[in-house]
């Protein structure tokens, strides 16, 4: 009995990754069909945007989350610089920024993020999405 459970345990340990950051904003990424998998997890850094979980502390407007805290678009430059520092010289150009943005967000804040990323030359981006089939794309939210 315990052998089987242990086998399960190892199975899950191998195929999963421990969540590095706790989300403090609500993020439900939109659906898409033409998705590609993110390879090379070590080259990816995440920028989250959504409505704060604790509205009484952070307001009800959309906020950006970098690492474990709320941030503004102006902090993205520092964030990218720190992420770059932690990579090897050779890999710095391949840094990919994964934008995990809630589907209800307005494009204004996304445009701000993208402009900052361009300014700091982090040009490879990935709009994080959930995979779906064509039939679902236009009917469900």
């Amino acid at each position: 009995m315990s052998d089987i459970i242990f086998m399960f345990l190892f199975f899950f340990m191998v195929i999963t990754t421990i969540r590095e950051t706790t989300l403090i904003v609500k993020v439900k990424v939109p659906l898409a069909t033409e998705v590609q998998k993110l390879e090379k997890k070590s080259l990816v850094c995440n920028i989250y945007a959504g409505i704060p979980n604790k509205k009484e502390l952070a307001g009800s407007g959309t906020r950006i989350q970098l690492n474990d805290q709320y941030a503004t678009a102006n902090d993205i430059g520092d964030f990218i610089a720190t992420e770059r520092q932690s990579l090897d010289e050779a890999d710095r150009r391949r840094l990919t920024v994964s934008l995990k943005v809630d589907q209800e967000t307005k494009m204004g804040i996304v445009a701000d993020i993208k402009q900052e990323l361009r300014k700091y030359n982090a040009l490879l981006i990935n709009y994080s999405t959930r995979k779906t089939t064509i039939g679902n794309l236009f009917t469900s939210k």
């Binding site: 999963t16 993110l38 993208k114 990323l117 490879l124 990935n126 709009y127």
Partner: peptide, 30 residues
């Protein structure tokens, strides 16, 4: 069995299956 069950539930809760996917784009330089 109890201990391993406990560990199993712990890992199930703290981890997420790696399903990061999305649409890739290259932004134009400034």
């Amino acid at each position: 069995a109890d201990i391993s069950f406990l560990l199993l539930t712990f890992f199930l809760l703290t981890s997420s299956i790696n399903t990061d996917m999305g649409i890739f784009r290259k932004l134009p330089p400034p």
